[in-house]
Measured scan of single mutants.
Amino acid sequence: PKDEAKKKVKEAIKRGDEETAKRIAKKYNLDWDDAKREADEER
């Protein structure tokens, strides 16, 4: 599900692992900028 994928993307971003985050986002066709902004807001 997309929500689960987005959570994984945000967790990867918070760990500083943007490569993984981008790969997950691409795989699930998520909006990378959107997920990154959300992760930054939660930090």
Rank of each mutant, 00 (worst) to 15 (best):
N29A: 09
A35E: 08
A35G: 03
D34F: 08
A39Q: 05
I24P: 01
E11S: 05
A12P: 00
K7M: 12
W32R: 00
G16H: 04
R23E: 14
E4D: 12
E4Q: 11
Y28Q: 02
D33I: 09
A35P: 02
E4F: 13
A39D: 05
E19F: 06
R23T: 10
L30R: 00
K26N: 10
G16W: 02
D33P: 05
R23F: 10
D3C: 10
R15Y: 05
E11F: 02
I13Q: 02
R15V: 05
K26Y: 10
W32S: 02
D3L: 11
G16Q: 02
R23S: 12
K10T: 08
D31Q: 06
E18Q: 08
A39M: 08
K36D: 03
E11H: 04
R15Q: 08
I13E: 00
N29C: 09
D3F: 12
K36S: 06
R43T: 13
Y28M: 03
P1C: 12
R37E: 05
R43I: 14
I24K: 01
P1R: 14
A5Y: 11
V9I: 14
T20K: 08
E41L: 12
K10S: 06
D40Q: 10
R43Q: 14
A5P: 05
D31A: 04
P1L: 14
K27F: 14
R15H: 06
N29I: 03
R23N: 11
A12M: 10
D3Q: 11
E18K: 05
A25F: 00
A35D: 03
D40W: 12
P1S: 15
D33H: 08
K27S: 07
E18H: 13
D33Y: 08
E19L: 09
E18S: 06
N29P: 02
D17F: 05
D40L: 13
E19P: 05
K22S: 03
K36E: 04
K14P: 00
A5M: 11
D17C: 10
K14S: 09
K14N: 10
E42N: 07
E42S: 08
L30D: 00
K8T: 07
R15W: 06
K26L: 13
K8N: 06
K10Y: 13
K7D: 08
R43S: 14
K22R: 14
T20L: 15
Y28T: 01
I13W: 04
P1V: 14
A21L: 00
A39L: 11
V9W: 05
W32T: 01
R23W: 11
E18I: 15
I24D: 02
V9M: 13
K2D: 12
K8E: 11
K27A: 13
I13S: 01
D31E: 06
A25I: 03
A39P: 04
E41M: 13
R15T: 04
A12W: 08
R43G: 13
W32Q: 01
A35F: 15
D33F: 09
R37P: 03
A21M: 00
A25H: 00
E11D: 13
N29Y: 05
K36F: 10
A12N: 04
K22V: 04
K26Q: 14
N29F: 06
D40I: 10
K6Y: 14
D31H: 05
D31M: 04
R15E: 05
E42Y: 06
A35H: 04
N29K: 08
K7I: 12
E38V: 04
D33L: 12
T20P: 01
P1H: 13
K22N: 03
D33G: 08
D3Y: 12
K14T: 06
Y28K: 01
K22M: 11
P1Q: 14
K6E: 04
